[in-house]
Design a protein around this nucleic acid. Structure first.
Lengths: 337, 337
DNA sequence: TTGTAAGCGTTATCAC
DNA sequence: GTGATAACGCTTACAA
């Protein structure tokens, strides 16, 4: 005779309460049932320490109340806060979050998706780089920062607007000779619009602009050094305003310039993109266009969980804002020129 | 007549392949089966795009290949890298990770556990603060940084040793008047041993030591300011070595001292604890005792997934190391005194 | 209203 | 080696 070491089931509760199995189920699903029955069931359940087996329930209902979040990495502050916000947004809707970290590996991304399909998650929020990602049409998917096709909703920051905003800011801070620096995935995504917006705004104001775009598969941040040397060595100051496509790049550029004896923000002002404050100090790493991460998360979750999946937007851009963080000359313009 | 919009099942594959249901199951479980059968099954599965329903499988096998990670927050760099490392360690073992962020709320923590139990995760790794946390004895649980009882394994950094190491470092760097600053949960946990280790080492070397411990429920980092003012105002330099229980605190102390005109590391050297480099710059925020986060994660996962749960350690401490990060005077000792 | 029974997609135990 | 068949814990018609 085996001792039943497994947790109590509805059957146990039914026996303990002296009612039918179906009645127990009804109690736990809020389906009306005689008050005396309800009492007995609840008491029995309490006595046994019964908890619904969501796993079994899911098998029947085809709902697991679980969503997956696929991220290239979670150590990066932007992704860390994104993960946390998504987690919280999901929990508000009574969902659990399965987190996957792919290292931007297209193979891993696809594998992930397969696993999620097998685990019957109710939906996937993905920040992925695999251009040919295959995902079951029936499984709700929302993409962050990468547009796939009209049928898969993409939510992103207003990257284009952010680029424009950066240009306007730099211009209003007195910059007249611009550079745009970009490093990132060779895969072109929503985030590339940052550069487009910046270019557009510079062109509109007749501001000269030089641009350098590097793929992070071939190059590292160090590879910007020759460019900077070319334009800043020997007292040269070819640019007085630089827009970088991420805060990370902005910080490194600032440091490289400092090494070369260029003073930031006195001689050159720099704006980055992301706007996630350093968690330890609470300070922004640099002047920046800040992404509305919480809204990004909330919106993604809303779209993911939307029941009516017919009229979903194919691209939804959320407004960004500007924040000074030490690499621009706020309030000192008058000293400047 | 309803169209079957749901994904294909084993039954479908069996029909398509013209074999029995059991045979299909065997193929997908690597149980020997006639070669011709295997072929037909695999072809049929491919044709139908069949994928195992892990959810149904779990119901039967009582294994979900899912583990939960419970964290107070994931925005903090230390937790972010911990989450990522756990995620990766889990994946190496073919497990998925359910992430929960509790905001250190004891209520939320307990709720989490309940949900995880209902979702039939195979185990939980928890970094929690609720002292009376209840978790099903049958569900593997490993605690990080908090000791519960001999029956629940706790993995942590060697906090005591780290405290000692900090003291030794500061002493060897010339410090002779120490302070220990600590802010954190009123709940005492493994991390409090950092202070004990530091105290022990100072006492052993007859180094005078002053201590200030603040609960983060009542106080903020700002509340260290009066203490610092008392000891550093008006040219006073009561301490020349400060150990802080986190890097975050160390950074803030450094900044507050700077505001007061105290030069770090020239006049005062500071060591923190955690050692997670800033992701954007790759630099350590300060000189620090670095926790072996990857090993912490790997070890936790190993213990969690250990089949033989009889001889598990009740506390497992992993070695820490020291790393200079700008708030100490490495290699300049000779100039110092 | 309450109880009964047929699945949900698997796995596992048997006879064949 | 293969193929019915009975679970796993739950939901949900449907019958009582």
């Amino acid at each position: 005779m085996k001792v039943k070491s497994t947790s109590p089931t509805m059957k146990d509760v039914a026996r303990e309460a002296g009612v039918a199995l179906g009645t127990v189920s009804k109690v736990f699903n809020g389906i009306p049932v005689g008050e005396s029955y309800r009492q007995r069931v609840e008491e029995a359940a309490g006595r046994l320490g019964y908890q619904v087996n969501q796993y079994a329930r899911g098998l029947k209902t085809n709902k697991t109340y679980t969503a997956a979040l696929i991220l290239p990495v979670v150590e990066h502050p932007y992704f860390a806060v994104l993960a946390q916000q998504v987690c919280m947004a999901l929990r508000r809707r009574n969902y659990r979050m399965l987190l996957y970290v792919t290292g931007s590996d297209p193979e891993a991304e696809q594998q992930c998706i397969r696993m999620m399909e097998q685990h019957k998650v109710d939906g996937i929020i993905g920040l992925t780089y695999n251009p040919g990602l295959e995902v079951d049409e029936a499984l709700p998917f929302v993409s962050i920062d990468r547009y796939f096709s009209p049928s898969v909703p993409c939510v992103a920051s207003d990257n284009f607007g952010g680029g424009q905003l950066a240009a306007e800011k730099l211009i209003s801070l007195g910059c007249r000779r611009m550079a745009f620096l970009r490093i990132g995935s060779p895969q072109t995504g929503e985030v590339d619009k940052r550069g487009s917006g910046f270019e557009q705004a510079c062109a509109a104001r007749d501001i000269p602009l030089e641009t350098l775009r590097l793929d992070d598969e071939e190059y590292t941040i160090e590879d910007f050094r020759p460019f900077l040397l070319e334009h800043f060595s020997g007292g040269k100051r070819d640019f007085d305003g630089i827009f970088c496509n991420t805060d990370s790049l902005a910080c490194h550029v600032r440091d490289m310039l400092a090494e070369m004896g260029v003073r930031v923000p006195e001689e050159v002002q720099i704006i980055g993109f992301d706007g996630v404050p350093d968690y330890l100090s609470g300070r922004l790493p640099c002047s920046t266009i800040v992404q509305p991460v919480a809204q990004l998360a909330e919106t993604s979750v809303n779209i993911l969980l939307e029941k009516d999946r017919t009229g979903l937007p194919s691209l939804l851009c959320l407004p960004v804002s500007y924040a000074a963080g030490g690499t621009t000359r706020e309030g000192e313009f008058s000293h400047g020129e």
